[in-house]
């Protein structure tokens, strides 16, 4: 049971990192960041730190929204 989780989640996290590095648009980079966080948070739950997992899951969209403020400012400059 545990090996299946480790293989699937490690593959998802590494694919997310590769997707962040390859793509050039900032929106695609943020989607890759969401993929990588989706691979990392079940590993924290599997280790047993439930409070850390809840804190990371609450803070993750907050950081993304604050980065989106800087990217969205460039598109509708007029």
């Amino acid at each position: 049971m545990n090996e299946f989780y480790i293989i699937i989640l490690g593959l998802i996290a590494v694919l997310g990192v590769i997707s962040v590095y390859i793509k050039k648009s900032p929106f695609d980079k943020l989607i890759g960041l969401a993929i990588m966080m989706g691979g990392v948070i079940p590993l924290i739950v599997l280790k047993g730190y439930l409070d850390v997992a809840i804190l990371v899951a609450i803070i993750m969209p907050l950081t993304t929204i604050f980065i989106l403020q800087a990217t969205g400012r460039n598109t509708d400059e007029s």
Binding site: G38, V45, A57, I58, M60, T64
Partner: peptide, 22 residues
């Protein structure tokens, strides 16, 4: 683990919809 799942579901849905809206 149920509360961790609830927190992750709400947060990730909010994040994806924020990216799509922007």
């Amino acid at each position: 683990a149920l509360f961790a799942g609830i927190a992750y579901f709400v947060g990730s849905t909010l994040e994806a919809n924020a990216i799509a809206s922007t």
